[in-house]
Simulated assay, not measured.
Amino acid sequence: MKITLIAGARPNFMKIAPIIAAIRDRQQQGEDIHYRLVHTGQHYDKNMSQSFFEQLNIPEPHVNLEAGGGSQAEQTANIMVRFEKELTEHRPDLVLVVGDVTSTLACSIVAKKLMVKVAHVEAGIRSGDITMPEEINRMVTDAITDYFFTTSEIANANLRKEGKQEEQIIFVGNTMIDTLLKQRSRFTAPAIFATAALKPQGYLVMTLHRPANVDVQENLSLLISEIMNNSNGLPVIFPVHPRTAKNLESSRLSYPNLHLVEPLGYLEFNYLVENAKAVITDSGGITEETTVMGVPCMTLRDSTERPETCTLGTNELLGTDPRAIKPAMERLFRGEWKKGSIPPLWDGHAAERIIESLIEIFAVTEKYSRAI
């Protein structure tokens, strides 16, 4: 069996690493399974891309399409044109995409038009917010996918509502948590930990990158001001996403306890998160990691595609109204934040289940082909 694996943006790398490891394990057991790793180049900044390959022990991609930059339409088109050539020259039995970034959508469309089967890891999650580019990516990808590997029963239910067949839906758990649990002992303090004299539980971590929060300078300034005014004087560490940095340059925000840092590597960022008093974010993936590490998390969004982080985990959905921040922070500092629990099958073995399922699927397919 030949599988083409797609990685394009920072969230993909954490999800693809354990899948590669699971394939290699099965190869060592004598299984006839091979992969080709395609990096679309959607994230082309070293801290957003290359450092993740190095830290997570992901092998060098077989090819980098170098399709980054431009508008979403330009980026999608670049990936599709370049991946079509790649797939024509190196045709697999299956294209495996992960997550909900532009690369996921673009490569799925190309594969299906070339009559190659598609498997989607992290399928079925829905925010219900069609203004989010990621929601469009998820919906379109799942509309044409052949095999759906899911992280929760909620995702399973979403796919059933959309008419997917039960045999297509395979509940495996969360590959991003596979990576988190494998790498947790290797987390490394970033430079800011020493330079800002940070102490465990003595600081907050903030990440913002959603267009609704960062594209309008006034909104961004209001959110950050409210967070800083209710931080009880604790240091707030803010690894700044490139799109956010542009608006911050002209915002004139100045707080002595606000520390702006470059995007961090995986091991450094998660060290910060694991030791933080709380995390304030608009990222979906971070809410999963905080849930597993038991760190209080506040999400500045009106909806989430990962509701299990709220119903079971440590996350709370605050919305985008800055006025919701103060009461949430007050509860945090009173020690009233919920403890949470870990969702089912978030146990570090999701990738193994994915590869086992694909081996079984293709064994049945091959047996059927021989029969006819």
Rank of each mutant, 00 (worst) to 15 (best):
S71M: 12
L56M: 07
I359K: 04
R370P: 10
A106L: 14
I16K: 09
M1I: 09
M48Q: 08
G124L: 06
K117M: 07
Q183R: 13
Y44F: 13
G348E: 10
A350T: 13
V118A: 13
V95M: 01
R160C: 11
E134R: 00
L114D: 13
G163D: 02
R334C: 15
G284E: 09
S357M: 03
K85F: 11
I3G: 01
C310K: 06
P296K: 08
V172D: 02
L105T: 00
N229P: 03
G8K: 01
I325F: 03
Q217P: 01
L5N: 13
E366H: 04
S283L: 11
G69F: 04
T314Y: 03
I6S: 09
I237M: 09
P327G: 08
I192E: 10
V214H: 05
N174G: 15
R26F: 04
K117I: 07
H43M: 15
H259L: 02
V216G: 07
K338D: 03
I355S: 07
P92S: 07
E122S: 11
E249W: 04
V95S: 13
G294N: 06
H39S: 08
K161M: 11
T40R: 00
I177P: 01
K85H: 13
T145V: 11
R160G: 05
S341H: 02
S254G: 03
A73I: 08
P263Q: 06
N270E: 07
L159H: 15
H90N: 15
D129H: 05
G202H: 01
P18C: 12
N64F: 07
V205D: 01
L332S: 05
T131A: 09
S127K: 14
L94R: 12
G124E: 12
F193P: 08
